[in-house]
Design a protein around this nucleic acid. Structure first.
Length: 733
DNA sequence: CTTAGGG
DNA sequence: CCCTAAG
């Protein structure tokens, strides 16, 4: 990719420069000057940030007390920046990795490969543009508060970074691209800023990156949260992504670098648990410091939430990422499903090159197009939607308050949630179960930057309802084990009112996934009255949908009505894409439990994009959905029967229900299958396809190729004959 | 809209 | 997967 290459180049260029110091004194001197300049800039920036933080601190005395501000002032930014750049680099190098966070960016002139790249950060409140050289931006701790920035020129973007003293935070700065680089990631015409408070964590090496913003926090109100989210200022295009915090509480945004990124030791040393605690209930919304978290009903919660933010020290600072990609990966063993909403915006001009294509795509499927990593920023915010019910009633208050006293007994899986309530105690003892929260699996939302907040809200709502209504099934987990036998009674399964059901958990899983995808956990001491989920057929059909709805309805009756089964693709396949959710061990504290199975996210990431988008949004690339073995099997079978060249028929015959598989996809898959079959097993990637299938692929391919050739020959013959015949006729006449 | 291929 | 040229 051009962009990546270019970025790499920049980075490399920097490295090169460093290594070749001796090469040219002049160059060195130049570099030096630059460094100095950058340092100055960095300090300026820091000062600004520090000032801001200081203000915050004042505002939120609770959180004061860290040395971070001091550090910042002292210029401890270097490390962090370096980390950021490294992370960035790492990310760039990993094409498949969606997680990208932005950091400073290159405003590069391609001509100056040798020079360190310069990143420009725009800090709110400061009219100056700060320039940090790559090399300069390194420091162990950087603490920046998020800032929003107006875009300065057509291509410039704001960079905002906030780091907290705990070192955990990190953020990305938006990258500025110069006018020439339209394809650069950083090149966004605008930025959407979701004000979410979150904590940004830098993954330590080996961990996946993630940027997440935690949305609401406590549990309870998906809707509210979403609404809040919607209220966040959307400046323009950006991809936003939020992660849920595994714990179920608001979590910080995590940014991790690619597996290789070297992060400063800070992160590693920082006990996550500590952090997490500090971040609990971080307010999701706010765009700015002074903005209050309006959705909070619970005072205590509110207070709590702010604490982190205000803290310079160990709390997170909210940040805005304007960035690019952020792949969320949250999940550690403890994670729950990620529910994140991803809003992707792109630069219209760039991305949207063809309206025609856009429509085309829309017509063909409802996939979520992903613009190639270029253009978009992401902001992520995770919305942990939590539904709290007590006695069947949706209870927000409890949700909020429960958090405070929440005793979480982690049993294998932590408890996200449910607290139990006393049983009603009747003859047939009932189990009252309270599910404190559920996380909504990842959602992708595509929306034009020109869309209104209202439409954004609607889109999010639709996405959420679609998922809740028809894209999920409920799983029951007891003592860490998934209860698969749906025919068992609760008692038989070990769920009774007189037992402590600490280990009872529920999960929301994509219907298509076969592996357990715990989404949420609940713990209850009493017996749950909730039904158990039923395994769905691999190929969900209408029947499957039914089931889904039913199972969902048990848990979320309120959503049943809105289920938009149709919006959700019936993926039979299921996605198997290995979730990038790598494991985040650091998210330790999590009370949430959750293990994230592979397919979970993917299946859920269907994008409930409004069918008729009023505006063509940026064309985005569809999400990648690797073919499952079952799909391959179906494909092979169909091709064996129909032959190559009849992809539409193949589609109808074998993938009629898979809306996300177009005949072109099938054709492409066949192409890759043929290729795969021809290469050595060692060279194959992805989910291994049984050799037997590959053999059939080759056989079928050979057969039909030959067939096709013959047909063509026949055709030619016929044509020749036809041509001759008329002539003959004429002659006869 | 489908196919077929290159990217 | 995307994009397109050709039917």
């Amino acid at each position: 990719m051009v962009l990546e290459r270019r970025l790499d180049y920049d980075f490399n260029g920097h490295q090169v420069q460093v290594k070749r110091r001796a090469r040219s004194a002049r160059r060195r001197a130049k570099f030096q000057r630059r460094v100095e300049d950058n340092q100055m800039c960095a300090f300026d920036l820091l000062a600004t940030v520090a000032g801001k933080l200081f203000l915050q601190e004042k505002e939120h005395p609770l959180t004061s007390g860290d040395k971070s501000s001091e550090k910042i002032q002292q210029g401890f930014v270097k490390e962090e920046c370096r980390d950021a750049s490294e992370a960035f680099k790492t990310e760039l190098s990993n094409e498949d990795c969606h997680r990208r966070c932005e950091h400073g960016f290159v405003k590069d002139d391609s001509k100056n490969a040798d020079k360190p790249f310069k990143a420009e950060l725009y800090v709110e409140g400061s009219s100056d543009i700060k320039c940090l050289s790559n090399s300069e931006v390194q420091s162990e701790n950087c603490h920046f508060k998020e800032h929003s920035h107006p875009k300065i020129d057509g291509n410039s973007h704001v960079a905002s970074m906030v780091a907290n003293s705990s070192c955990l935070e990190r953020l990305g700065a938006e990258r500025l691209a110069d006018g020439k680089n339209h394809n650069e990631v950083g090149n966004l015409s605008s930025k959407v800023e979701l004000g979410l408070s979150s904590k940004v964590e830098l993954g330590s090496s080996g961990s996946p990156d993630t940027i997440g913003c935690n949305l609401g926090g406590d549990v309870t109100k998906v809707k509210d949260e979403l609404h809040k989210f919607a209220k966040a200022p959307v400046v323009t295009s950006t991809e936003m992504r939020c992660l849920d915090d595994p714990v179920g509480e608001r979590s910080p945004v995590q940014l991790s670098s690619g597996g290789n990124a070297k992060l400063s030791g800070c992160v590693d040393n920082m006990p996550y648990s500590t952090l997490s605690e500090g971040y609990d209930n971080v307010p999701v919304v706010s765009r700015d410091d002074d903005e209050n978290f309006s959705g909070c009903d619970n005072p205590s919660l509110e207070t709590k939430s702010f604490r982190p933010i205000s803290h310079i020290g160990d709390q997170s600072i909210r940040k805005t990422l304007a960035a690019k990609y952020c792949k969320v990966a949250q999940q550690s063993k403890h994670d729950t499903l990620s529910n994140s909403v991803e809003v992707v915006n792109g630069n219209l001009n760039e991305t949207y090159t063809s309206r025609k294509n856009f429509y085309k795509r829309q017509r063909s499927e409802m996939n979520i197009p992903f613009k190639k990593r270029k253009i978009f920023n992401c902001g992520s915010f995770s919305n942990s939607n939590e539904l709290v019910r007590s006695g069947g009633t949706y209870d927000k208050k409890n949700g909020a308050s429960s958090t405070s006293h929440g005793t979480h007994k982690d049993t294998g899986m932590s408890s996200l949630g449910a607290h139990q309530y006393s049983s009603l105690g009747s003859k047939d003892s009932h189990v009252n179960l309270r599910i404190k929260s559920f996380r909504v699996p990842e959602l992708f939302i595509e929306i034009p930057e020109t869309a209104t907040i209202e439409s954004l809200k609607r889109s999010v709502m639709e996405a959420v309802t679609a998922v809740l209504g028809g894209g999920l099934r409920v799983g029951v987990i007891l003592h860490g084990k998934k209860v698969r036998d749906d025919s068992k009674t609760l008692l038989q399964a070990g769920i009774s009112h007189d037992k402590q059901l600490d280990a009872l958990g529920f999960t929301l899983e994509p219907i298509s996934s076969q592996s357990p995808t715990p989404v949420c956990a609940a713990d209850s001491r009493d017996v749950p009255t909730v039904d158990k989920p039923q395994p769905l057929p691999r190929y969900p059909s209408s029947a499957a949908i039914h089931q889904r709805n039913q199972s969902c309805s048990d848990v979320f009756p309120e959503h049943r009505v809105t289920s938009l089964g149709n919006l959700v693709e019936s993926d039979q396949d299921s996605a198997l894409s290995p979730v990038n959710t790598a494991v985040y061990k650091r998210l330790a504290d999590s009370r949430a439990l959750v293990t994230v199975p592979e397919m979970g996210v993917q299946a859920l990431s269907l994008l409930p994009v409004p069918q008729k988008s009023k505006r063509p949004e940026t064309v985005q690339r569809r999400i990648r959905r690797p073919f499952s073995v079952a799909e391959v099997e179906a494909l092979v079978q169909a091709v064996e029967k129909l032959g190559t060249g009849r992809w539409r028929d193949v589609k109808l015959r074998a993938f009629d229900n898979a809306k996300h598989r177009t005949y072109v996809d099938l054709k492409d898959k066949w192409k890759t299958l043929v290729h795969t079959a021809r290469i050595s097993p060692q060279q194959r990637r992805g989910e291994p396809v049984p050799q037997e299938l590959l053999d059939r692929v080759l056989t079928a391919h050979a057969f039909w190729s030959q067939h096709q050739t013959k047909q063509q020959l026949n055709k030619q013959h016929q044509q020749q004959q036809h041509q001759q015949q008329p002539q003959t006729c004429l002659l006869l006449q």
